[in-house]
Amino acid sequence: MSENRPTPDKAATEGAAPGRKLIAVLFGLTAVVTLMLCAFALPSIHSGPDHVPVGVTGSQGAADQLSQRLDSGTWDVTVYPDIESLTSAIEDRDVIGGIAVSSGKIDMYTAAAGAPSATSALTTLGSTLADQQQAEIHTHELAPFTEDDPRGAGFGAAGLPLVFGGMIPAMVLTRLFPGHPGLRMRLAGSVLFSLLAGAAVAALLQFGTGTLAGNYWLTSLGLSLGMAALSMTFIGLEALVGFAGLGAGAAVMMLLGNPLSGLGSGPYWLPDGWALVGQILPPGAAGSLLRANSYFDGTGALAPALTLAAWVALGLVLMLLADRRGRRTGAPVEPSQAQPTPATA
């Protein structure tokens, strides 16, 4: 009896297959690394103040003259009748800061915790104006970072934990409870993990590093909502599309959501148009919610909270669609549950 041996052409094809696979993997990984560099580097290179809302006040002539001098593409200026109106607008987050002009003196009113980079640019602008007019300058900080973390370094570092806090549990729960039978367990696990992780991260940032202020429970719930928005969306994508859906969602949040979140700089420091994209995605919305709850007593928290709730709803809808499809087609039997076929002679 002759043995079945591969023909030379077939053997050559099988030998070349691993080489082609290796080349495809190398080019794919190179593309991913390049995209990551572009996503993190380009916003930093092209960042700067863009239509930053600021207020000015003082004598009618001085305030109007100052508002006309400020570049309309950089600053979005509003003239207020007095200092009380200006400070109220800053505390209500209508503007990020303001300049009060009087005879021989310039007063700067800032809220560094709301937009650190834009506030720094505004302070530099005020110093330049004071030098030009040979006037004294006084700075009044209305919403500072905490004394333990005056630069907000811990706040800016919260971006990656937020993303990974949604991505990693989705991957682990999908592996532990796969298929349609495990969908509800994945949903329950996502909610419970988000609550626990939100409380832990808030405790570390508030009581450990002293980065956050405000009501601890409100802050922790905001962080939990951000993690739930990410993890439930990832789980819903995986349940409906498969692992490719989870990978695509993770790539979007890593390559776009994290660098465009504005956690370290504030949203007004991002390139034109990208700030809005960053605030629509969960990392940016979670950062804005955390900023509002921690430094502004909840002022400005409604919009990011509704954005995160919409992402949670999207994840639930995706899971519901996957659940209905699984009920129609019937849940597949897991390999570990399959009965062995009896051997026959």
Rank of each mutant, 00 (worst) to 15 (best):
Y216G: 08
A188D: 01
T307F: 02
F164C: 05
A345K: 02
V56P: 06
L256Q: 07
A17Q: 13
T128G: 08
A63K: 12
P49K: 09
F164V: 13
D64H: 15
G104C: 09
A143G: 00
A313I: 11
V317C: 07
A89W: 14
V277T: 15
I96E: 08
A115R: 05
G236T: 10
Q65Y: 08
F164K: 06
S224I: 08
A250Q: 03
I137L: 15
D297E: 11
A17V: 10
P6L: 14
L129H: 02
A143W: 02
V277C: 03
K10P: 00
L302P: 00
G257Q: 04
E334P: 01
G28P: 04
E147M: 06
L195C: 09
V77T: 15
V317F: 04
G126W: 04
L125P: 07
V277M: 14
D107C: 02
A338W: 02
P178S: 10
I280C: 07
L176A: 09
L306R: 09
I106D: 08
P335R: 08
T307I: 13
A157T: 06
A121T: 11
V163I: 14
Q65P: 01
G189N: 10
D272L: 03
L320V: 12
D131F: 01
L276G: 07
A303Y: 03
S220H: 10
S88W: 05
R151G: 00
L276N: 11
T124W: 01
P6C: 13
L22K: 13
L256H: 10
R186S: 13
E84F: 02
W217L: 15
L173S: 04
V252T: 14
S88I: 09
L204T: 02
